[in-house]
Amino acid sequence: MDLLGFIIILVKVLVVFAATMLTVLVMIYLERRVSAFMQGRLGPNRVGPQGLLQPIADGIKFMMKEDIVPAGADKPIFILAPAILLIPALMTFAVIPFGSDITLFGRQIPLQVADVNVGILYVLALTSIGVYGIVLAGWSSNSKYSLLGGLRSSAQLISYELAMGLAVVSIILLSGSLKLNDIVADQQGYLFSWNVFKQPLAFIIFLVAVYAETNRLPFDLSEAEQELVGGYHTEYSSIKFAMFFMAEYANMITAAALTVTLFFGGWDFPLVDESSLGILGTVLSVCSFILKMGFFLFLFIWVRWTFPRFRYDQLMKLGWKVMLPLALFNIFITAGYLTVRALV
């Protein structure tokens, strides 16, 4: 790899990392503001204009707090757990294409940090590593509430990862590739070429599973504060707690980006051929991607303040008895359709 190529990769990594962290901050602000608005309140509006600096104030507060390691905790794992959760959450975004190719310095640069040809497997693998952070945090805290939170989280992940994976399989069947770029390319053209319209059932299953994966309401059983105090992060304080917090939002951002990529044409702006418009097309595609992602991030908050939490047995029943058969059924139909199309 030449020097320019290396610099380009480095810049892309930095930009994506900075953008993700910035979106985390914006999400923390929006979570509080939107939740307040939905409850008829105003929410934080004192720090900076319209309270925009609130997440920074929160961050400073977290750093100033005393860092407590409970007695009897498994110290190395206790310290490692938040990192195990946060790092994969930030790494997942690497394979997501967030815009059409851009031509700079006489070379074509794809707006994607790494074009891995097993992109979707990479994403699924990393999101599964993230749960180790939760389980280890729960286990190493030496607290029954944390342990229960961690256990719930792992059980939840196993039951929902299956349905999620199977929903993704039907997308892979359609596009014939695990590469996220190919999946995006497959959805270009007219509006109804987006996968939501081809695979509505897979979309619904995926969306529900994503909420379970990111431990958000109505599936936030691993941190159900009414039952488990704080769940897996009960014993955490200071910057370590902030890391769990950031990881949760980073996971949400990745999940939203993945939903957009798999089902809403990625950076595709309907009815426009981005590659023919040059730099304007790239800007348009990035804006379209951000807009779609923003909607799904808003949906995360919106859903949180609308639906009550599932009971644990209901969660399991939904995962194994409803989502899994539905996802299998969907694959069956998709595969059948493809076989018939190939024969005719």
Binding site: V34, F37, M38, G40, R41, L42, I204, W302, T306, F307
Partner: peptide
């Protein structure tokens, strides 16, 4: 469940745009 879920989302969305009761 989806019609009911959608109705619920609309309720919270309505409140999102409603006048806020907070007195500063």
């Amino acid at each position: 469940y989806f019609p009911a879920l959608f109705k619920g989302l609309m309720v919270t969305l309505r409140y999102f745009f409603k006048r806020k009761v907070t007195i500063q």
